[in-house]
């Protein structure tokens, strides 16, 4: 067994923040929060027609970045790492290739990157950025659901009190809000397509909820 990941006491003491590549090698397959629902099989055997389509984007890298939005050096550093400037307007998001960045709070952004890149991106931040900031890997704590289809807005109106009218909730807008009796980060990624970031421990509840509330429209699970 490799000990490449082990830090010595001296190394740790020198580190202001502990960074760890938390993903093992490819021989060990991670299990997303909805692993037990076996969505892959449902996609094969389940209905192919319906007003709402659901797809899980599993095992992505989730990084929560906190910094001072008035610190231009930090903003520049973030842009160097991500290739795109942090969105500073409340409730907006930006994308750069496989990276996407969501405004969560005046000093907080949620960054999604491919699962295997989380450690690289985190390390780059640690290299590039100075001053007071925080970067937290929360990849194991959430998963991403993509909901789409002609009835997706009707479905979401049954889940969240957010006004989803396209004039008030255009593509790219992101909100952190209540979702049924849980919570979700909702982002519009298309006219009839939304992305939900949900917490691991609530994912089964939300999966059950979505199955129940989509009854009037029909739910198609996709891979």
């Amino acid at each position: 067994m490799s000990d490449l990941n082990v830090m010595t006491a001296a190394e740790m003491a020198a580190t202001k923040a502990a960074v760890m590549d938390q993903v093992p090698g490819p021989e060990i397959q991670g299990q997303s929060p909805l692993h037990h629902a076996d969505l892959d099989s449902l996609a094969k055997v389940g209905p192919k027609q319906g007003g709402v389509h659901l797809r899980e984007h599993k095992l992505l890298g989730h990084l929560t970045l906190r910094l001072n939005p008035e610190n231009d050096d930090q903003l520049a550093a973030a842009e160097r790492v991500l290739g795109v400037a942090l969105p500073l307007q409340p409730l907006t998001s930006v994308e750069n290739g496989s990276y996407s960045v969501r405004w969560m709070s005046p000093d907080e952004w949620l960054i999604l990157v491919p699962g295997l890149e989380a450690f690289d991106v985190e390390s780059k931040f640690r290299d590039e950025m100075g001053g007071h900031y925080s970067l937290v890997n929360s990849s194991g704590g959430s998963t991403v659901l993509e909901l789409s289809g002609p009835d997706v807005v009707e479905l979401l109106k049954r889940c969240t009190p957010i006004d989803l009218h396209p004039k008030l909730f255009p593509v790219g807008k992101v909100v952190s809000t209540v979702f049924a009796k849980s919570s979700a980060i909702i982002r519009r990624t298309g006219e009839q397509r939304f992305e939900l970031v949900i917490r691991r421990s609530f994912s089964d509840y939300i999966w059950l909820w979505l199955q129940e509330t989509s009854r009037e429209f029909g739910l198609v699970v996709k891979v």
Partner: peptide
Amino acid sequence: PHCAEYREEEEF
């Protein structure tokens, strides 16, 4: 005042 929009009480 931070999100700059109205939200339902249940979020607060």
